[in-house]
């Protein structure tokens, strides 16, 4: 009887697992839920700003030099040539879905961050890609305008404001130095698209996880 007891748990466990595995293996493939996004879900995500990246987040991502994000400048070539964020590539909004560029926006590897001067164009681009079921696209909330007001020309907080406000300001000053060449951290190694992945804290974006 002792002997049986030693064997049975494994046999039961194995049998149940194999059975479950068999069922899992013969189930027909599931539909990809992200390709079936309806308007209501899209609006909800938009409202939750689930795929928005703030300028502060973006600055940190660029400073950290994470290789997994690709910045996409949606403005015209002229505007792009005048100024663009470090490492950004230029895909003018109207050519977003042309053959050349679709591989950049419909892919499973990098996280794209769309930006324009404000938020309108980039949000629209995000909605269009999201509706088509493309993954890994995000947009810069506030666009370049906010980039300039918050990161390049940050305003010091009032003396009465919270410590958090001061910390944020410090952080922005550091980022400013980083981006305006007055390097306090380390030289930006922005080779083409070598940038950084959005650290998602937002609602409906892939949950931040792992335990590193």
């Amino acid at each position: 009887m002792k002997k049986v007891n030693n064997y049975t748990p494994r046999l039961i466990a194995s049998l149940v697992m194999v059975l479950m595995g068999f069922v899992a293996a013969v189930l027909p493939p599931t539909k990809n839920s992200s390709t079936e996004l309806n308007a209501e879900q899209l609006l909800r995500e938009l409202k939750l700003e689930s795929h928005a990246v703030s300028v502060d987040e973006l600055a940190q991502l660029l400073i950290d030099k994470d290789p997994s994000i690709l910045l996409i400048d949606l403005r015209s070539k002229t505007e792009y040539d005048t100024f663009h964020l470090p490492g950004a590539i230029n895909i003018p909004f109207d050519s977003l879905f042309t053959e050349n560029w679709v591989p950049y926006v419909d892919q499973g590897m990098r996280n794209n961050v769309f930006y324009s001067n404000g938020t309108t164009l980039s949000t629209e681009a995000w909605m269009l890609t999201r509706q088509r079921g493309f993954k890994n696209n995000y947009y810069l909330r506030g666009g370049l305008n906010e980039w300039f007001t918050d990161i390049i020309l940050p305003v010091p907080p009032e003396a009465t404001e919270s410590k958090a406000a001061f910390d944020l300001y410090q952080k922005r000053v550091g980022a400013k130095m980083f981006f305006t060449g007055n390097t306090a951290i380390s030289a930006p190694a922005q080779s083409e698209s070598e940038i950084k992945l959005p650290v998602p804290q937002k609602k409906k974006q892939r949950v931040e996880g792992g335990c590193s």
Partner: peptide
């Protein structure tokens, strides 16, 4: 398929 891989892992 995910299910098939799961089956292989279980095996």
């Amino acid at each position: 398929k995910d299910g098939l891989l799961a089956f292989a892992v279980i095996f």
